[in-house]
Structures are given as C-alpha cells and as structure tokens.
Design a protein around this nucleic acid. Sequence first.
DNA 1: CAGGATCCCGAGCGATACTG
DNA 2: CAGTATCGCTCGGGATCCTG
Lengths: 122, 122
Amino acid sequence: METEDCRVREVLDKVGDKWSVSVIGVLGRETRRFSEVKRAIPGISQRMLTVTLRALERDGLVTRTVYATVPPRVDYALTALGLTLLDSAWPLMNWALDHVGEIDKARDAYDRQRPEVPPQQP
Amino acid sequence: METEDCRVREVLDKVGDKWSVSVIGVLGRETRRFSEVKRAIPGISQRMLTVTLRALERDGLVTRTVYATVPPRVDYALTALGLTLLDSAWPLMNWALDHVGEIDKARDAYDRQRPEVPPQQP
DNA sequence: CAGGATCCCGAGCGATACTG
DNA sequence: CAGTATCGCTCGGGATCCTG
C-alpha cells in the first residue's frame, strides 16, 4: 500500500462511485437497452446514466451499439474485461449484503454512546 | 439489483471513497499508530485520516485504543469484521492492479477517436 | 502526538429544458 | 428513445490554525 496504490484507488473509486456498480450489476451477462437499464435502477437520472455508461465505455468495460432505427435504439453490454470485473466484485458485493446488518448495529451502538448534538427544537 | 441494492451501494461507496481502502490496506493484520498510518499513505491530510478512521470505527471495522501517555498515543487495528472486509476486497484490489494497464489502453484508444475540444492556445 | 474547529473552493450530481 | 446543454446547489476534502 504505497506508491502505485493511487492507481488502484483510482480504479476502486470508479467501482465505488455512485452508480457504476449498479449499472455493471444490471448489465450482468445480458445486453440491455438504455431505457431498460434506467428502469432497473430506481433513483438514477438519465444524465447520470449517460455519464456513467460513457465512463464505463471509455474504460473498455462496456460496449455501446447504436441502431439507426426510428425511434433510436442503443444496446449496452459488458465486455470481456467488464465480465472479469463483475466476477472480481462479487465477493465484495456479497460481503456488503451479508454484513449490512452488523454495520448498522455497530453504527447505532457508536451513536448511542456519543450524545452528538442532542436534538433541540429551534 | 433493485430494491435493497441501495444499501449495498452505500457500503460500496464507503469502500470506494477516497481513503478507506488505503487505510484498511495499511492496517491489514497489524496494529498501527495514527502517525504510522499517516506516513504510510502519502497524500492524505491529517483531517481526512481522522475522518476516515472515525467512520471505519463507527461502522465497527476498526478499533481505536487510546493510551493516556505523554505524548498521547492512539492505536488502530482492524476488527474481526474489518478483516472479513479486507479478505472480500482482495479479489477486487487484485483485479484493479492486474487491469490498470488495459483500462489505460482502452481509455487512450477511446480518447484518440473523439477530438473532444482539440487543444487551443488561449 | 493526535485531533478538533474553520474557511473555502470545486467536483459531483440532480432538475429541467431542448433535440436528432 | 436516447441523448445533449445549462443552471445551481451540496458537500467532499484540502489548507490552516489551535489545543490537551
């Protein structure tokens, strides 16, 4: 954890950013249209979906296929590289799922110990 | 990837944030003092190290031990939970290390295809 | 030595409106 | 349908100064 660790962190930042994981998870092993991905991720704005997909495409993690139809249609899918990322991220995603409860409990315990600006009524 | 996915993302955000991974990596299986961790992570400010460590402690991932000596001394170490996180994160960290090169290449190729505001001299 | 308190800038992102 | 363009706000986080 020293010198080129920053490069790792850069990649981890990407995985950790607000939407990339969700998008990669939704794509999984199937090809999806823009609107399908959007519908599959409740809170995302079309802007952030576009931005996120562009970034993933730029990094060689997803492919973008445009069909010159009317109305337009664009398909997204994970590349081979993207699939290896998905596989490598699985353990961590599972960890998150498995331990959310523990984390919540730890957090509550921690918060109960420190008053931290006890509620006032302004 | 639908409803409680947001909880997973919340945890992933934590892992993906700017310093958590580095801190967890530095702690690894050994106890370290505040200043040791700080020195092991080049770019970090003491403020962000404090903030990051507090968040990890709150989530039950690291323990904080204060010695009432002069000068003061504070030790940090991963909890059992933190260790399971470290293990689960390994595959992803390795993936990042192994594929940084590929990502850079993909990025360069992508950028070379789109002019994207060709350099001007203002 | 370990960290609390402030100030402050800019990236990140949501909301909205327009287009091929 | 699948974007692009703008505006504006939030807040992450760096710099700096102070303390037990």
